[in-house]
Design a protein around this nucleic acid. Structure first.
Lengths: 215, 215
DNA sequence: CATGTCAGTGAACAACTGTCATCCCAACTG
DNA sequence: CAGTTGGGATGACAGTTGTTCACTGACATG
């Protein structure tokens, strides 16, 4: 009755199976959502794909929006690794930009369905999912803002200006990731073109940043 | 059999009525799409709202995607006026930015359902609609690029760099418009906050532009 | 005035949808 | 080893969905 054990090692075979079905539902959902949006995904369509009775869905999720929120958390979970990778490396300005674009490209390459889902549902028809994505992105922007504020280039900047720069960066990084989504996975030759444009755009923003206090 | 008359004045009462129901379908669609996405909008749900038999829908559109594409054209039709308003005025740099943000705000205020539709379906589940939106935005970016290229600030710029700047501007203007979407129409007091952030972001991009060739 | 065109109708189709009460049986608990 | 728990299956419920069809009647045309 108390849910998962406090110690997470000895997971009963009972709840292990439950988690497996839950994960199967999430995986199948992500697969089906590659070519349609969440609001048009049917409960039976999903359970049919997994091989589970329709009623079994309710053992794991209240409704489709609930599953969508779970998918948001899963997506941003793997994105958080990407963020740490960017924040970790301290290097020259151009190297930071190159590394950022490379990490975005890698993330999209390795988590394509996840990010496609995020892009599609960011302004999609299911409100709780929209809000979950907005929350995650806001959290992302706040972390980036505190990083930027700690850098010497931000000396003399007001907190509001740092935040507006962070928002600009986050919005644009999402746009970059979406651009990477369009390159066909079978032959990623055009990926370098997109990366080139993205790098120049980020460089232009950085240039604007370094002259912000020029008067 | 030849469709509409070449002279568009003497419109038969017959086809006038047809256009009226077609417009009624588009209007009702836009209304219903305010809180859901196109892929979840049902054909019967729409015809019921208009007061037309379900089969009557096919007299005007092949399917829902077809109606969606028509809505895209309608949306960008009113947006084109906004673009002309921005391109028309020639003024100091800061005034251009202020005017741009103001025009975006006005467009969203006056065509809120149209733009909400665009934002939701830009990466939504219906492929033809996605492509129609992408085409319109690409056209927009090309026009903006030719405008930018004609300005003295672009001297020495490669066409590719002008285009990457135009893409950056277009993407960000869309983000600004989406931000305006979230302000409640009943009391638009927070609109000025969003406008302030948007102006500073555009100013930062312009700053980067003016130092692009600095070395 | 007669004829044909065609936007819109109403009925019927098969397939699908979310939801529920119920039972089953493997896995846990003491 | 008994008893309880709970994930999953079953089958049925009442609606809804998109699509097709023959049709009607107001308009347009010759």
């Amino acid at each position: 009755m108390l849910g998962a054990d406090q110690a997470h090692k000895p997971l009963g075979a009972r709840q292990a199976q439950k988690l497996r079905t839950r994960q199967a539902l999430l995986d199948a959902g992500l697969r089906l959502l590659e070519h349609q949006s969440l609001s048009s995904l049917g409960l039976r369509e999903l359970t049919r794909e997994v091989g589970v009775a329709p009623a079994g869905f309710y053992r794991h999720f209240r409704d489709m929006g609930d599953l969508g929120v779970a998918l948001v958390e899963e997506s941003f979970g793997s994105l958080r690794e990407m963020v740490r990778a960017i924040r970790g490396e301290q290097a020259k300005a151009d190297e930071v930009i190159d590394g950022t674009v490379a990490v975005i490209a890698r993330y999209v390459r390795e988590h394509r369905p996840h990010f496609r889902f995020i892009a599609r549902e960011r302004y999609g028809g299911v409100q709780p999912v929209r809000e979950a994505i907005a929350d995650e992105l806001r959290l992302f922007a706040e972390e980036l803002a505190s990083d930027l504020a700690a850098q010497p280039e931000s000396e003399g900047w007001s907190p509001q200006d740092v935040r507006m720069l962070a928002d600009l960066y986050v919005d644009h990084m999402v746009m970059i990731a979406i651009a990477f989504l369009d390159v066909p996975p079978e032959h990623p030759e055009s990926e370098e073109d997109i990366a080139n444009i993205a790098r120049r755009q980020l460089r232009l923003i950085r240039l604007g940043r370094s002259h912000w206090l020029d008067d």
